[in-house]
């Protein structure tokens, strides 16, 4: 009380911010904006590069309806259907296995796990997140091909991708479930709803959008992996829709890799240099490999983007209409 009475009279006009504070504010604002732009530049640049070099390729109708069967870099035409089918099959099988496992593990870690076992599990998931794709591929090769003498096959790629996808989805599921306020769980318990039903009907729907994001992140993580393809199935130019067969199977990353090796090497055996940007070769011959490479890259991005849009749509559909 006395403090209020003895407080010295304040100046009637409010002081303006000091020069030093204005400077610091300006500096911080500039730094943050600059960081944003620096982060944006490579992203926009990359997208522009891929679109500008690949767009005209994927706009041809044969791109979506034909394979590269019997094509060389000197023959025009053909498409990426074999690669699209292979990638979709491999990623689909991987997702069907990974998503339920990963979401259940995430639920276990957040809602049930207590004590050292939970900490060990979290730690193992962290380690798994950092496993390089080629190591996952070698592990699957060692297990199925070397030990069980299974021949190389598309589904083995899916198995390697599972190792890469599960930890990504587990981590996002964990984070998303932690974001669900405890008050909602308590509200549900207080209504006499059992724990598992609280999780299934209250917690999961509340976190649904976040869980979908996690799944999409997982798909995006594995769709472009190349090492498992090279080690576990190889690349075929022709159509092979049999995920469980023992022949080479086309895939988008495999196609990008294959066309990339065709940039510098002629099929006739005489090597000549070619700029990845240009089509013209010194001798005047045409090389279609760069087009196909960029086309496959753009197709891969487009597929991930399309899945993303579908997932957003599903997530919105799930919400109560405002």
């Amino acid at each position: 009380m006395t403090a209020t009475l003895t407080r010295s009279a304040r100046p009637t006009v409010f002081a303006r911010p000091s020069g030093a504070r204005k400077f610091k504010n300006g500096l911080a604002t500039t730094l943050v904006t600059a960081a944003f732009l620096v982060a944006l530049v490579p992203l926009v640049w990359l997208l522009w590069t891929v679109i500008s070099k690949g767009f005209h390729v994927i706009m041809s109708s044969s791109w979506w309806t034909e394979s590269q069967h019997n094509q060389t870099q000197k023959t025009p035409g053909g498409g990426a259907l074999h690669a699209i089918v292979g990638t979709l099959e491999q990623v689909a099988l991987c997702s069907v296995i990974s998503v339920p496992i990963a979401i259940l593990v995430g639920i276990y870690l957040v809602e049930y796990a207590r004590g050292p076992f939970a900490r060990v599990t979290t730690f193992m998931v962290d380690i798994l997140t950092g496993i390089p794709s080629i190591v996952a591929a070698l592990f699957i090769y060692a297990l199925f091909v070397s030990t069980f003498h299974h021949l190389r096959s598309g589904w083995l790629v899916s198995m390697a991708l599972v190792i890469l996808m599960v930890p990504v989805i587990v981590r996002t599921t964990e984070e998303m479930l932690k974001l669900v306020p405890n008050e909602l769980r308590e509200a549900s318990y207080a209504l006499g709803v059992p724990k598992w039903k609280t999780i299934a009907k209250i917690v999961l729907p509340t976190a649904f959008t976040g869980l979908v994001t996690g799944v999409i992140l997982g798909v995006a993580r594995v769709a472009g992996e190349t090492a498992p393809l090279l080690i576990l199935v190889g690349y075929a130019q022709g159509m092979n829709a049999n995920l469980f067969g023992t022949k080479f199977q086309g895939s988008l990353p495999g196609m990008i890799n294959d066309e990339f090796t065709n940039l510098n090497t002629a099929t006739g055996g005489s090597a000549y240099h070619l700029d990845p940007n240009g089509k013209r070769v010194a001798g005047g011959a045409i090389n279609y490999a760069p087009d196909r490479m960029w086309g496959a890259a753009l197709t891969l991005i487009a597929i991930v983007l399309l899945l993303n849009v579908i997932a957003r749509f599903v997530a919105r559909f799930n919400k109560v209409s405002q």
Binding site: E183, L184, A187, L191, G192, I202, P205, T206
Partner: peptide, 26 residues
């Protein structure tokens, strides 16, 4: 039953479903 300090309706549910939640989930 219990009512909490902060109002905590289920965010994914409509007014109707909030009230019906206990019976439906039980």
């Amino acid at each position: 039953g219990m009512v909490f300090q902060r109002p905590n309706p289920f965010p994914t549910m409509s007014i109707y479903d909030n009230v019906a939640a206990g019976l439906k989930l039980q």
